[in-house]
Design a protein around this nucleic acid. Sequence first.
RNA 1: GCCAGCUUAGCUCAGUGGUAGAGCUACGGUUUUGUAAACCGUCGGUCCUCGGUUCGAAUCCGAGAGCUGGCUCCA
Length: 574
Amino acid sequence: MDQYSLETLRHSASHLMAAAVQKLYPDAKFDIGPATQDGFYYDLDMEHRLSTDDLKAIDKTMKELSNKKIPIECLEMPRDEAEKLLKEKNQTFKLERLRDIPDGEKITFYRLGDFIDLCRGPHVGNSGDIKVTRLLSIAGSYYRGKETNPMLQRIYGTAFHTKEDLNNHMRQLEEAAKRDHRKLGAELELFGFSENVGPGLVLWHPKGALVRHIIESFWREQHIKNGYELLYTPHIGRSRLWETSGHLDFYSDAMYSPMQIDNSDYYVKPMNCPFHIEIYKTRNRSYRELPLRWAELGTVYRYEKSGVLHGLLRVRGFTQDDAHIICTPEQMGQEIRQVLDFCLFIWKSFGFKDIKAYLATRPEKSVGEPERWEQAIASLEKAVCESGLACEKDEGGGAFYGPKIDLKIKDAIGREWQTSTIQFDFNLPERFDMAYIGNDGAKHRPYMIHRALFGSLERFFGILVEHYAGAFPLWLAPEQVRVIPITDAQHLYARELEAFLASKGLRVKVDDRSESLGAKIRLARNERIPYMAVLGEKEVQSSTLSARSRIDDQIPPLSFEDFAKRLLDEATPS
RNA sequence: GCCAGCUUAGCUCAGUGGUAGAGCUACGGUUUUGUAAACCGUCGGUCCUCGGUUCGAAUCCGAGAGCUGGCUCCA
C-alpha cells in the first residue's frame, strides 16, 4: 500500500530528527538511530543536556526540513574516504562503528541536506515523505549498552504513514496507561508500597490478598492433581549452603548482606533450589521414586538496582511459584511435555490463549557434559513441537548451567509478557552431588529441572490486573456481588440476600448507605464488581432481585436461587 | 547504579518570593431515592526531608529520599 515499510519510514525519521538536532546543536556526535517496534530513537552526545522542553524545538525543525522535501541520497564510498569524512566531522562514535564493518562490505552514507550519516539504509526518497512524527521522550543510554561505557543521550520518537495511525497509537498508549497496574492497584486497594517499608517491597492490601489467596489455592489444587508434592522451606540459610550452591560466588550481587546468628552467617534466600536439594539429600533415593515433582510458593529476596524497580513487575521481594523436577534421563522428555501442557492449562484458566515459546540453547561458557546438553535440548524441542506452540530458537541464549524454554503470553491488548520458564540445571546436581540408585544398583546423577509457571506471584498479579484492566473475572473478583437496597425499607431483605449468597460461598457485600441508586451503581461499577443485585419494593413483593452485570447492564428479575445458580456456574476458571 | 524529569490534603490538581486553595473522598446532618454522582455542613497540610540564600521560601540554590520514562539486568 504505502511505498515504504514502516521500518524504513521510522529509520528515515530518526535521520530527519538527527538532522534537526545537528542544525540546533552543531557539536552533536551521533551514534546509532534505528527503528524500533513502536518507533525510533537516536543516541547522541553533545555539550547541551537535553530536557523535554527541547523536544518542541527539535520537532519544529523537523517539520521545516520535512516541508523542504530534501532528497535523501545514498553515497557509496571506499573505506579511506569514509574515514576521512567522519574524522573531518569529528564523528568519533561513527568512526568506531565504521571499524565494525567487515572488509569487503559496501560502505554507504545517506545524506539529508547537511546531515550525512554512515548508514546501511534503506531510506525514503525525501524528507517530505516523513510527515507524521512525534517526539516522545529523552533518556540516557550507555554507549553500546555497556554499563561501564559513558552515557549518551537518547531521543525517542515515533512515525507513521498517516495521522490516523499516529492517533491510534497514542490512543493505545492511553489505553495501556488506564490499565497500569500501579494505578489500578492503588485505586482498587489491591496492593501498595510504603517508604517506611522500603522500595520494591509489596504490601498486599485485603482485596489484593484475597485475589492472591484464590490464585494460590487454585495453584496448589492443580499441582496436587498433576502429581506434585508441596514443600515449605525457610527464608534464610547458612553461608555454607550458598557456598555449596555457588550463589556466593556467582550470584552475590543480587544477595543481601548476611546476618549473624550464633557465630554463623545466614543469608536471606534469593532462590529456593538449595533447600529442595537438601530435602532430596536426606536419604538415598531409588530410581523407583523418580520423578519427584516438588513445588513451593517460595518467597525470595534479591537486590535490584533502584532504577529498575517497577510496580509489581520488578520488585525486591517476591514469591516464586517454584518447582523442581528430579528425574532419570528416560523420564525427562515426558516430564517436559507434562510441564508444557500444565503451563498451557494454567494460562487458559486465566484467559491467555496466545502463547509463544522461546528455546535457548548452549552458550559458549557452560558447565555439564555436552551429551547431557544435547539430550536436554532435544527433549525440549520435541516437547515444544508436540505441544503445537509457536517456537523461536535462541542459539547460545541458555544459562551457563542448562538450556531452557521461556514462554511469552499475549495479553488482552496484545502486549507480550515473559512468564513461565523451564530450565535444565547441570550445575546444582554436581555441586550438591545429587544421586539416585539405578536398577543396576549403581549411583547415577539425576536430571534436575527448575520451572515456574507464573514466574512470580507479584509479577503475575501485575500482569493480570493489566490484562483484565482491573475487572477480574467472577472466580477471582474479591467482591463478586454488591447488594443494593434502594431505600431503608429493603435493608432487612438485603441482609437476607447477603446471608443467602454467602451461604452459597459467594463473596458479597451490602451497600446500605443513604445514597441514591445511581450513586451506588456508579461506585460498584468503579470498583469493577461483576454483579449488582438491586432490591426495591417490587423485588420484596415478588421475592426476587434485579441483577445487573458489568457486561450486560440489566438482567430480568431472578429468584435468589436462580441468581446464585447463574453465578456459581460462571465462577469457575475458564 | 547511571541519564532526564516529577513530588502541594486520602485521590486528581491549581497556586513562581508576601496569611496554602478547589473538586472528589472521609466524617456529621438532612433526604428514602428505580439503574453511572441528592443537598447542607465539618474535618483534613512537616507544600517529600534536611541544609542554605532572603526581612520573608511551596516558590530560588545545594544535598538526600521516593516515584516516573529510559539504559543495564531480569521472575
